[in-house]
Amino acid sequence: MSDAIRRMKDLPSTHLLGTGTPMCAGCGGLEALHQIYDVLGTNTVFVNAAGCMTLLSVYPFTPFRGSWLYTAMACAPAGAQGVRDALDILLTSKRLPPEDDLQTIVLTGDGAAYGMGLSSTSAAIDRNLDFLYICYDNEGYGNTGQQSSPATPHAAQTATNTGSRGFPGYKKDLFGIWAAHRPAYVATVIGAEPLDLAKKIEKAKSLRGPRLILALAPCPTGWDFDPAESVEIGRLAVRSGVWPLKEYIDGKVIHNHVPHPRAPVEEYLKTQGRFAHLFSPERNDALLGEIQAHIDAYWAAVNK
């Protein structure tokens, strides 16, 4: 692991995360996770909540070279609290040599992070728990076949929104919810932008307290696209301004990358079957316009 990652060339290619997992081919979440793991290293305990990545460890197979604990959907931050408290108690009472200490990591999908686990997350931040929360956000309950979750974007079709207008709600602002708690660090990342991701993980790793890494996870199965397109769709999410790459630190939000020129959101939407109803059998200009306006308004506020 390098001391500082500045260029693509500096990215570790250690691949600490083992191959052979049952994640779908082209999984954007796994793409982010293995990059994250290479920076965090194996002195980690991943406390996991119910979601796609529960299946990373299916007895007797695990891709982790460090530790792992599966809890349940709502309570991974509470599991992290128990582990962190226990490690602290062992360190203080000198029953654990400092070199045996572990970073406490929570790993969940958007279903847990935006919804069922939000109460236990908020409380863990309130308690100033020293933990890093990694959310792989594929914008739906992917493990059960992509029903709408609180992270589903407006107008996307899901297994529970099959009509011509798709999901009527709007993606919840988890970044903002975290930032409102004034934690140590919040950052959005995407596996398709590995340099930005690695820098943020390095920064997160150097800090203490509650930290969130929110990774948009292009999902070939749930979003309906060819797995080969996984990275290109991720890049388009950034270029079109759908997925702002940003950080919250020291009370301030910083946008690491302001897309200029910003690609029309259509270019992003067209790549995915979940938005196909916006283009066929006929273009839904009203809905497309609404989605674009939302993004324009976001960036107008950023650039003010």
Partner: peptide
């Protein structure tokens, strides 16, 4: 390192 409470299918 140990993975605890892992799934079985």
């Amino acid at each position: 390192p140990v993975s605890q409470a892992v799934a079985v299918l």
